[in-house]
Nucleic acid binder design. Structure first.
Lengths: 267, 267
DNA sequence: GAGCTTATACTCGTCTGCGAATACTCGTAG
DNA sequence: CTACGAGTATTCGCAGACGAGTATAAGCTC
């Protein structure tokens, strides 16, 4: 993957603004704000001059002139170069064609949720749910105002956000309910550990190499289980340490699960 | 929102590793790698020593000892402090309770997709679709290997990822098809502009304050249309400039749309 | 046992991000 | 006419991120 000379998303916004006409930095900010670009990308205005400077350094924009308007400070006007135009198109193409690989912060949080107790997690998820629903309502409301004025074509980002929002809401609700009702296997043990500090004796077996639950094609697909680890690794694996099991480190194989409860997918 | 003293997600991973037992940095890396934490958060190992140093500076971890093991370089062992434990719990709680507000890069890309042409965008979306499906297949495969060994409880992050992945796939497919078949209003005009450079004369009206399409409560809800702009803004608004319209800046009101085609949601 | 690769364990320097501060000007309420 | 707050336009400084580099040890191969 070729690394972008200027990686800050604000740079992309700047390039896209300059397509229209040359501007000075502050004007770019005004235009982008007016266009509601802040809803589509996280923009830190403090980076504006740095980013524009970097774009210039790499030849994506060029100075047109420096004008002094009355007693105001001098303003430097920038225009898009051919290289800048190309960079913009290439960048957009990349954003559209390549999925974001980085996991979300929420996913990170889920992966270590065992640092807390199940009931606390359920409460936190309820808070999240409230916030998500509020946001959803906001977005829908904004739509109701927009759709009369703007063609669908320019609203796709918003549709996308809505779809993901709804998917997340549904899933979070399912998980919360399963935690609250202990419908998810292991929750009872987890709660017990949290309340008493005792590890259930059968936990190790429960977590470790799951005997006959589904001996099927498992075994060594993907990363091999750490239990009978390779001698090359001198740190002890999760398997040998029940504490590690309850502290909730996902398995080396973490990633997916066949859905059987209703947070899951496909019947 | 209180700002985190150490904001790097790698710091969270480090804290979570130290819950188990004191370690030196390299060992943390080994453990985290082994646990597959890389699948749950974007980790740059180059930041490890900086981050551990920062955690120490802020009292979240403390030095236990420096040992020299044979001729190897000296290693500093760190342990979690009470403050560190508290920080970990607070951090996880925040991650679970507060939705990620930042839009994804894909959303940013969508919001300026008009920098390209509709057919090109459709191609790029097809590429994305392929990549997404590949990733989905990978994740499902990893599951098949995991589920025999690990309780559901430790796989929720993976389930979440799957759900979002499927939602995105479905939506992207819908959009691509609508672009390819011009089912989405405005695509024909967009393509025409791209091919000939001509702006359809009715575009301005089409984009601008949509007369009677839905006069309802619209009008001044949300940000008012820039056309008859306030005198406070001296830069001209989208409305007065057809070029701006086709260059695809979303409206000031961008965000959502009532779904009517199948990329949409709810019946 | 020479020479290769892989793992261990860090360090460094550069580049960037961005919060906060600065400074000037204009409209307007008193 | 004058003080004030809102808008205009930019600079600065420093913390932090992280790619790349370094150096040694332990296996492994022929």
């Amino acid at each position: 993957m070729k690394r972008r000379k200027v990686g800050n998303m604000l740079g992309l916004a700047v390039l896209s603004a300059l397509v229209e006409r040359p501007m000075h930095p502050y004007e770019m900010a005004s235009v982008l704000r007016e266009r509601g670009k802040e809803a589509d990308m996280k923009i830190k205005w403090g980076s504006l001059y740095t980013v524009v400077g970097n774009l210039e350094k790499h030849g994506f924009v060029a100075t047109v002139e420096s004008v002094r308007d009355g007693a105001r400070p001098e303003r430097t006007i920038y225009r898009l170069t051919d290289a800048g135009r190309a960079e913009l198109e290439d960048w957009v193409a990349e954003l559209l064609a390549e999925p974001d690989l980085e996991p979300t912060k929420f996913q990170a949080g889920l992966s270590i949720m065992a640092s807390l107790g199940p009931d606390e997690v359920a409460d936190l998820l309820t808070k999240r749910l409230t916030a998500l629903e509020k946001r959803l309502a906001e977005r829908v409301a904004v739509l109701e105002a927009s759709r009369a004025e703007v063609p669908r074509l320019f609203l796709v980002e918003g549709e996308y956000e809505l779809v993901l929002l709804r998917a997340e809401i549904e899933w979070v609700r399912g998980l919360r309910d399963d935690l609250a009702t202990s419908a998810l296997p292991g929750v009872a043990e987890w709660r017990h550990y949290r309340e008493t500090g005792e590890l259930p004796e059968d936990l190790t077996a429960f977590t470790e190499g799951g005997q006959e639950w589904k001996a099927g094609p498992g075994g060594s697909a993907g990363t091999p289980p750490p239990g009978p680890g390779k001698p090359s690794n001198r740190f002890r694996g999760r398997g040998s340490d029940p504490q590690a099991a309850i502290t909730g480190y996902g398995p080396a194989l973490a990633g997916a699960v066949r859905p059987t409860h209703r947070t899951g997918v496909q019947p």
